[in-house]
Design a protein around this nucleic acid. Structure first.
Length: 113
RNA sequence: UGAGUAGACUGGAUGACCGCAAGGGCAGGUGCCGAAAGGCCGCCUUUGAGGAAAGUCCGAGCUCCGCAGGGCAGGGUGCUGGGUAACGCCCAGUGGGGGUAACCCCAAGGAAAGUGCCACAGAAAGAUACCGCCUGGCCCCCAUUGGCCAGAGGGGCCGGGUAAGGGUGGAAUGGUGAGGUAAGAGCUCACCAGCGGUUAGGCGACUAACCGGCUCGGUAAACCCCACCUGGAGCAAGACCGAAUAGGAGGGGAAUGAGGUUGCCCGCUGAUCCCUCGGGUAAGGUCGCUGGAGAUACCAGGCAACUGGUAUCCUAGAUAGAUGGUCAUCUUCGACAGGACUCGGCUUACAGGUCUACUCGCCAA
């Protein structure tokens, strides 16, 4: 994922948390806020409650891979923070993919719709 | 061949497509973001997590703190010798304990400087006598008798001696045997243990032999004593770039010494300091950031830890934080686990596998 597609500052995260809309299902939570840019930017927040560093790193990598593959399918101009919930630890890649697509659909940011 | 002990190594591989981070090269337009500092974008190529990267428990380097002086307090270490930049680490020994053995374990200075504590049990846990044993005085009962006196023996009361035996305890002031005694006791003797001394060996911890007087509770991961070490804070250290905002108000202290010197005193330094309100508060960026007590090989010294020399090599540097996704094959694919300033250790976690040396047993020769 390119650097322009990532949330990199602390302020960006707090702004999305405070002002953004949230959507959730069993596995994931996303926060969404339009950003006046021509691209979407993603951030991931995996707390220490999820497990040790290896577990957290794998979760973050999977989520980043999923977002990378979906970035061209979405409407541009949003900052999105993705947070996994505890059941995501047992979920495989395909399940996470379905969960993320479900949330994007719920938020109505797919290009086709 | 079985059981075991010690040490070392390994910690999925290969391929395909799509992705990530850093370095180098090429190519742009001076393109994009930004107020600036600075960053971003395409293609090619090289490199890209661990033995513990972990816990953050020790020791250092490095950085800053008005240089770090002395004393006290506090903290740490604690058999000996060596190694090391240093250590609470490592090596080689000594002593003690465990194991048939290879080997493993030990917070292993001082209890005759002082103080404290030793639950329960027990009479007593520093001066102790409950049951006992021995014994002196007085009184009572009584075999022996015809009676009196005397009186073996028994009991009671008041003393004295004793530390053998019983009992309690983790521990009761050495153990076993003999002599000795009213009964006993290192009271005496032999051997053993312990203590002190001499001699010999060893750098030393200590060991061995001999001699001596005969003996003193344990506990110092209780205070303490002794010896040695110890300034504090940490990469969010710290340095630089750099806009914007603020650099204000009120009160109090100060050369008769504020404040600093990270617990206190001395000493040193010597002008601003403290409180409340307001503002600001990890803005952002670059550096620090990886070439180092460095790795590998060989040679030399040393029992070893380790040291010296020569040659070759450069091996992650992110900053919301780089190794992922899908698939195929390798019979079962697999543990603990992800760098965050850098080293040396310790501790803890760990599936499977490989190698070396050694011990004990069984079988065969």
């Amino acid at each position: 994922m390119k650097k322009e597609n990532r949330l990199r500052r602390r302020n960006d995260f707090t702004r999305v948390y405070r002002k953004g809309k949230s959507y959730a299902n069993k596995y994931l939570v996303i926060y969404l806020l339009s950003n006046d840019r021509e691209v979407c930017r993603f951030g991931f927040s995996v707390g220490k409650r999820m497990g040790k560093a290896v577990i957290r790193n794998r979760m973050r990598r999977r989520l980043r891979e999923l977002c990378r593959l979906h970035v061209d399918l979405l409407l541009p101009g949003y900052d999105i923070v993705v947070i996994p919930r505890n059941p995501a630890l047992e979920a495989d890649y395909a399940t996470l993919k379905g969960a993320l697509r479900h949330l994007f659909h719920k938020a109505g940011i797919f290009r086709n719709h």
